[in-house]
Design a protein around this nucleic acid. Structure first.
Lengths: 194, 194
DNA sequence: TTTAACCTAACGACCGTTAGTTTGTTTTTG
DNA sequence: CAAAAACAAACTAACGGTCGTTAGGTTAAA
């Protein structure tokens, strides 16, 4: 019975709350209930542990978001996008994976900056592209302001990041306040006047 | 001729790029051109150095933003707010103080979390309150959507954080792309249809 | 009998910090 | 006005602790 996944879970939590440099292998090992050098039975280095955790977490988050979009495919786009923002906001409070991912996208370990961004940026680009494509579908494009699908897509990810920012340095409560203020503004801004 | 301000400047730069835990007193001293213990002639501890830098930086940034708002008091509010967003975005690239402040508002040193947030949160609250007040002035309130001044103010800070987020994990270029997409959406969302 | 997962012991490097000293400039005093 | 005292800002040396990491041994399952 290997503790590799336990190490990853504990490391995830500590990386999320203390950062890469702030979370030491000693504290990780303590929390797992093993000795520090035992970590090296599973990972070549601290950086290797981090990258392993990061890859796993990014993969899962991709799937979750894709799944959420698929489940809401029948809904009007603004309902589905609102739900997604709400979900991400709630996840930041309840889910260490989301906190980890967000923190490390903003401020990755200096030595791993390029490697991390090389994984994250394609994901962001793809997400924005697929969102643009979805908003460009006939049933949505007709309801959009002439500004177009791409403008609405970029504005959306900006709004999401703005709400998540408040979830980071504020709280779920204040982030929810932001969401309920910005969402009507966003909708009026992207929907065509009828 | 004391090197205290030099120490603060160098620490600011390293804290901004490597984080509090990632920036060591040894490296700071090296960059200043003094020995590590000499720092203790000016600061009681690393935390003390950090707090000193943080206070100074927050004070300056407050003044800058207040000044910017005052200078643009004659303009239509959406022009002044666009300019402010642009300014903050540019500052993130060119000004280490802005990078430091933003990073430490998101993820302050764990042990100083409450102290830092105790300084930052009042500032954010005041900024939002004054923005709401400004948008509520007769010459602006009449041009606003019935949603109201407070909604427009909260939506604005959300947009700013969204643009700055892209400045952090992307670049000035991609952040500018966001700004030019989100701004028309924001304006349509907060202005009354004529 | 090999292999995987842990262990203990210990490494050198660096961490933040303290003690005590030197040096050069102010400030006070005879 | 010159000597003395005080002070500020640097220094060297070194502290105990923690960092990530390696070597090598034990144990139990395959």
């Amino acid at each position: 019975m290997t503790r590799k996944p336990v190490i990853e879970d504990v490391a995830l939590g500590l990386f999320a709350s203390e950062g890469f440099e702030g979370a030491s292998l000693g504290r990780i090992a303590d929390a797992v209930g093993i000795r520090k050098p035992s970590i090296y039975a599973h990972f070549r280095s601290k950086e290797d542990l981090f990258l392993s955790v990061f890859r796993r977490t990014l993969r899962r988050k991709k799937r979750q978001i894709f799944q959420f979009a698929q489940d809401g495919a029948g809904l009007p786009f603004e309902e589905m996008l609102f739900g997604l923002t709400e979900r991400l906001m709630d996840d930041y409070e309840s889910d260490a994976e989301t906190r980890f991912l967000l923190r490390m996208c903003y401020f990755p370990p200096t030595s791993l900056h390029d490697k991390v961004m090389g994984m994250v940026n394609p994901f962001f680009r793809q997400a924005e592209r697929e969102l643009t494509r979805m908003l460009g579908q006939p049933e949505n494009a007709g309801r959009l302001h002439p500004g177009g699908a791409q403008e609405a897509a970029i504005a959306y990810v900006t709004v999401v990041d703005g709400v998540l920012a408040e979830a980071i340095y504020g709280s779920r409560r204040t982030a929810a306040r932001r969401l309920s203020a910005v969402w009507p503004v966003y909708c009026r801004g992207v929907l065509a006047k009828h």
